[in-house]
Design a protein around this nucleic acid. Sequence first.
DNA 1: TAGATTGTTAATCGATTAACAATC
DNA 2: TAGATTGTTAATCGATTAACAATC
Lengths: 220, 220
Amino acid sequence: MKRTGSKVSIAVIRRLPRYYRHLSELRQQGTVRISSSALGKAMGLTASQIRQDLFCFGGFGQQGYGYNVEKLREEIGEILGIDRGHTAVVLGVGNLGHALIQNFKFGNNGFNVEAAFDINDEVIGTTVGNIPVYGVDELDQFLREHRVDIGVITVPRSVAPVVAQQLADGGVRGIWNFANVELKLENAEDVVVENVHFADSLLTLSYMICQTADDKETEE
Amino acid sequence: MKRTGSKVSIAVIRRLPRYYRHLSELRQQGTVRISSSALGKAMGLTASQIRQDLFCFGGFGQQGYGYNVEKLREEIGEILGIDRGHTAVVLGVGNLGHALIQNFKFGNNGFNVEAAFDINDEVIGTTVGNIPVYGVDELDQFLREHRVDIGVITVPRSVAPVVAQQLADGGVRGIWNFANVELKLENAEDVVVENVHFADSLLTLSYMICQTADDKETEE
DNA sequence: TAGATTGTTAATCGATTAACAATC
DNA sequence: TAGATTGTTAATCGATTAACAATC
């Protein structure tokens, strides 16, 4: 089990959810065991890298056999903290907040959404997919009365920093940020911010399609 | 200008949109010039890395002065292809498709959304934020009649592969994929897929908040 | 047992950082 | 000119790949 406290690189960490997803698919297909080379081929990674990645956490395979899909999936899920009963609140019930609450499977990733908050009187007091919507003025009190692990920020970028600080002060441990700003938090050393920057993603795609077009022209 | 055809690493490319965003903010604040060290401090990068990154494209600074914010922003924008008049179509007008069309500023990133497609008769024929919604059965014809650079996939994961293949066959150059599947395209060597995996992002955050919690316990 | 495949160390490769001459 | 800061090469660091003994 060797839960080494020593740093595992962020590159490895960001591959874990992909492993988890692929293993979940394999499990659904009824695959019982898989070798590092087979998994690598399916995911576009080298067998070596997969073994090295898993070795960071102790290695969950068996020589001559490979990895048990079900077991490896569970182990990775545990590493990612899917079994910890994390809780979340959503800040901003606009189009994106709505979309996340209604379509995104928080439960599959070990999170339970406890409440949502907005400033718009038209949505306050309603529920979205069984989640109650409160006014932002009730946020501080809610955070005092409930253990909330993360806040999901889907408010406009202008108010995002304020809401983020409020969440951090209220004791959340992480912020999942969909607003297109780099959040800078005060007195919040331990609060982790994970950004989802749509624009960055789209611009990367923009660059890459230009490249393929250019390559064709110069035929290199 | 030295537009070297030689490979620029993906790590560098993925930093370019961040540079662009920060430079846009600086410009709005009225900042005229900035040094690599000042920009580095603001972005959490080393000055060396910034100069090295920009050097990949020829370097846009001036010794003893630094970088002109406006000019550097424009240069990076050009590298990213923001000025190329890219076009997009959105596949799936559910909550997420709606959110993207109405809230995400495609225009700021050099994209114009030409149309959206869905299977639901209730939305077909309507418009969302001035974008007409057609039936998916009209997609092939639309792609034949219009130059569409990218397709934005916000359909359920079960139908995503089919739609993606249709887009690729129809000649798009990129796919911006929000469905939680790894797309495998046939006969589409040049089609670039950029994934936005919400689950991967959330699970990474989940891991990281577990870490900070564990660190505290073991007080290392 | 023989074959397969991992765990784990070593070698390689690439990306980041450091250094400094060039030059504005 | 003197000071500042880049462009650019060299050094370092870290991540990926290769190799192979361990072992199921």
